[in-house]
């Protein structure tokens, strides 16, 4: 992805999602800091990691030089690049967002809000790809424009469990990262399945 395209993606999708979660934290009395306080440097940071992950994925998956990546892989690459931890000035690996409550660190919240932003942006990337592709069925594009990518039903859980598909998936992705097994290939399968669920819902509603 060239810098301009990434800049558009950043301004039109990522910044909105970041602002939405930071506002949520603020309204509940939590302070959020960006690891890289300069917003422009932060964007460059993520872009550089995106490009690095992309090159590595293409090389390992042996994707030909002229082969474009599909929307699920682009969403997966962004997710992995965004949640990546980097060492702070003390050499400790940190998420891009750091949360404080009454001046105390809440490390698990760093993971939760970072992953939730990444997931929301990944969904936005898939929706944008669908909406801008004139070769895709116009009815499906209209459906996505109106409803967005829909969350699949969480199988085997009931109302009393008070959870959702996205919530359980996010927890497992946080766990995968802790195990150092967050994979672009597997995330693209996940995003493809989520979109497929939306497509099936659309097809059956016709």
């Amino acid at each position: 992805m060239d810098k301009k395209n990434f800049g558009d993606l950043w301004n039109k999708i990522a910044l909105k999602e970041i602002d939405s979660i930071i506002a949520l934290c603020k309204s509940n009395g939590l302070r959020t800091e960006q690891r890289n306080k300069n917003t422009s440097d932060f964007k460059k940071d993520i872009y550089s990691r995106y490009e690095c992950e992309r090159a590595s994925f293409r090389s390992r998956a042996k994707i030909k030089d002229n082969g474009k990546l599909d929307r699920h892989k682009v969403a997966a690459l962004f997710y992995v690049a965004f949640v990546d931890k980097e060492p702070n000035e003390k050499g400790k690996a940190e998420f891009p967002f750091i949360v404080y409550y009454n001046n105390s660190r809440v490390h698990d919240l760093d993971a939760i809000i970072t992953h939730e932003i990444a997931f929301n942006v990944a969904r936005g990337i898939m929706e944008s790809f669908i909406l801008s592709d004139s070769e895709i069925d116009s009815g499906y594009r209209e459906h996505i424009n109106k409803n967005g990518i829909r969350e699949p039903k969480l199988i085997c859980f009931g109302e009393k469990d008070k959870t959702s598909y996205k919530e359980e998936v996010l927890k497992l992705l946080i766990y995968s990262q802790r195990e150092k097994k967050l994979s672009v290939a597997q995330l693209s399968i996940l995003f493809s399945s989520i979109e497929n669920n939306t497509l099936v819902k659309y097809e059956s509603s016709k």
Binding site: I21, E116, I149, K171
Partner: peptide, 12 residues
């Protein structure tokens, strides 16, 4: 999809 549901729960 519900927006920021996990973050909301965690913050609460």
């Amino acid at each position: 999809m519900p927006k920021n549901m996990l973050s909301q729960k965690a913050i609460e």
